[in-house]
Simulated assay, not measured.
Amino acid sequence: MVKAVRVHETGGPEAMRVEEIELPPPGRGEVLIRNHAIGVNFIDVYFRKGDYPAPSPFTPGNESAGEVIEVGKGVKSVKVGDRVASLATLGGYAEARIVNEDRLIKLPKGFPYDVAAAMLLKGLTAQYLVRRTFKVKAGDTILVHAAAGGVGLILCQWARALGAHVIGTVGTREKAKLAKKAGARHVILYREEDFAARVKEITKGALCDVVYDGVGKATFPASLDCLKPLGMFVSFGSASGPIEAFDIGLLAAKGSLFATRPSLNTYAAKREDFVKMARDLLRVVKNGDVTIPLHGTYPLDDVASVHRALEARETTGAMVLIP
């Protein structure tokens, strides 16, 4: 028996209950991991609330890090005792979990479990955003909404390392300091300023090559006014609610813009892509270009209060649960 967070009916943070469950032995191609640290992400909130469908009851959580304690038939890439990080839909908020072999990466010797647990979903999201969705290069001007959030802080650091001019938006002065430290050359307090007007002022009318938006409803369509002609609007999250349907002619009217709604699941669907992306992420973390921002670590039993803080946007960086 292992301790796990269970959701029997979707709803608020109180819908999550810590219970004892029994895990079956790993099947063919599967691996049983004892979790040492568990990553918390906004997508976990979407599942808990029922915005994303899941079988009932279910255990939330997508990413965790720990050690392999049992392998199923046919598993070749890892063995018992290996230190690993996993990224697989649901099952993460538990003392142990079963995942498919192709959703695991080996961790370098001594790599901290809490960093690994906080790194994969947010870090791989940043990886595909700056390396594939829009290939950021030296001299580009980019706008990062929620620049002090878990993904935002990584985006700012990685884009700075690539030579981009980073502009970030944040909600408080405390978060502005974090975004600046992470590499944002300019930070806009979106609650006090018209961010589109400030972007125009900062860039002297040149505007941005790309906008990375994990906020959604609250920042649209003003984000389009921050883009130069042929610029790209990348909507990768909806923390304030989803963007509603809009007239696609708006993109033509504002400069033949591109707009995309990518997801990590698509970019990392193939094992070879997942591994390549993870290696790229490990490289920039190990060489110091990117530091994974940890807001704090919390006992698994405190999962409800952790979700409340996350939804209230009171956090910066990543929150990690310790089983």
Rank of each mutant, 00 (worst) to 15 (best):
L178F: 09
A161N: 04
A161D: 00
R173G: 03
A161R: 10
V170L: 05
A159D: 05
L178N: 11
L178M: 14
H186R: 15
L178R: 15
R185K: 04
H165S: 14
A184P: 08
A182C: 07
L178S: 09
A184L: 03
T172C: 11
K175R: 14
T169G: 12
A179V: 08
V187F: 10
A159V: 01
L178K: 15
K175L: 03
A176D: 11
G168E: 07
G168Q: 08
L189E: 10
H165G: 02
G183F: 09
K175E: 03
A164K: 13
A164P: 11
G171V: 05
R160D: 00
R185L: 02
G183Q: 01
G183W: 01
A164W: 10
V166N: 14
A179Q: 14
A176L: 06
A161C: 01
G163S: 01
R185G: 02
K177M: 02
L178C: 11
A161V: 02
L178H: 05
R173H: 12
K177C: 03
T169S: 12
G168S: 10
R160K: 15
V187G: 08
T169M: 09
H165F: 15
R185I: 00
K177E: 11
H186T: 05
K177S: 14
G171I: 03
T169A: 13
I188C: 08
G171L: 04
I167L: 10
G163N: 05
E174Q: 15
V166W: 11
T169N: 07
L162G: 02
G163K: 13
A161M: 01
A179F: 08
G163T: 06
L189F: 08
L189Y: 10
K181H: 00
G168L: 13
H165L: 07
T172N: 07
A161L: 05
A182E: 00
A184S: 04
R185T: 01
G163A: 06
A179K: 14
V166M: 14
A161I: 01
H165V: 12
A161W: 02
V170D: 05
A159W: 06
L189M: 13
A164H: 03
G171Q: 09
L178G: 13
A182G: 01
I188H: 09
V166Q: 13
K175G: 04
T169K: 09
A182M: 08
I188P: 09
G171D: 02
A161Q: 04
K175Y: 01
L189I: 13
G171P: 07
V187R: 12
G183V: 00
L189H: 11
A184H: 01
H186K: 12
K177P: 01
R185P: 00
E174R: 15
V166P: 14
A176I: 06
G168A: 13
K177V: 15
G168W: 10
